[in-house]
Design a protein around this nucleic acid. Structure first.
Length: 269
DNA sequence: ATGGCAAACCTTGTTTGA
């Protein structure tokens, strides 16, 4: 079973690019981020005609996540637990029924967190958008802990807006004071990994030069000035099923591309 | 910090992203 994550940066603008990629990559499941659409405006028929079940959790203009799956989805839930006042659409879960295993899928669009305010001592303030990011990651940790304790193999995939290590950026120095690369952001990510998750891509592909995002600005793609911020985290029971993992980087060079590219895992499930 | 680009809004500029 091939499961991918793809921040498409607007479903209306990316419909053709997405259907093209679906036809050639043939994923069984795709976790989408930044659909930038309300549920009613999502072109679900386009994907249903391609054989996918569609579950969305959208909002107007920004954010929004969705799941496309050729296999049945069960027990769909929307929203990351832990803050009833949070109305940003950044989290969706479902169970996908494979041939041999049921897998709990979590699709996430982790807050960017910029701009960051710094105190007199040079440390980031826990307020505003950066405070929201750190608080959101605390809630993610809590959900991750529960997934780890459950019996069902599970994965959490999406746009984490985290550059885990310097080798995950072409120019790490440019990100030193950015919410994506601050030590506090990376520590919060490691704290989740340290529950026992396997980060799929790094389990197979060490070393620099692997990216999942290239800014539209300043010729970032042509200069290969990228960062790796889209990740698949698997519980041990899920990691045991992984047979392959990859990044479809060539998608970034096409017409009207998203600024992110798909990251996928193949599971023996 | 800004923002060379892009998307959504319901526009002719503003907001947001990373």
């Amino acid at each position: 079973m091939k499961i991918a994550t793809f921040n498409i940066n607007g479903i209306k603008a990316r419909q053709a690019a997405l259907t093209d990629w679906l036809s050639e990559a043939e994923p069984d499941v795709v976790l989408l981020q930044e659909i930038k659409s309300v549920d009613d405006a999502f072109p679900r028929e386009v994907f249903e005609d391609m054989g996918y079940n569609v579950e969305t959790h959208g909002q107007k203009s920004f954010n929004g996540v969705a799941i496309l799956s050729r296999r049945p989805l069960e027990d769909v839930t929307r929203g990351l637990p832990g803050d009833d006042a949070d109305d940003q659409a950044r989290w969706i879960e479902a169970t996908v029924m494979g041939d041999t295993h049921a897998i709990r899928l979590c699709g996430l669009y982790l807050p960017n967190g910029n701009p960051v305010e710094f105190g007199a001592d040079g440390t980031p303030e826990h307020n505003g958008k950066y405070g929201y990011k750190l608080d959101w990651m605390d809630r993610l940790h809590a959900r991750a802990e529960a997934l780890m304790e459950a019996e069902m193999p599970a994965l959490m995939a999406g746009d984490y807006n985290i550059i885990p290590q310097a080798e995950d950026a072409a120019k790490p120095e440019a990100w030193a004071k950015d919410a994506l690369f601050l030590p506090q952001s990376r520590a919060a990510f490691r704290r989740i990994l340290n529950l026992g998750f396997t980060e799929a891509f790094r389990a197979r592909h060490p070393g620099p030069g692997h990216y999942s995002f290239w800014d539209y600005q300043a010729g970032a793609w042509n200069r290969n000035n990228g960062i790796r911020i889209d990740h698949v985290l698997m519980t041990p029971a899920c990691a045991d099923l992984m047979t392959d993992v990859g990044i479809d980087r060539e998608v970034r060079g096409r017409d009207k591309p998203s600024d992110h590219v798909p990251v996928w895992v193949e599971l023996a499930a």
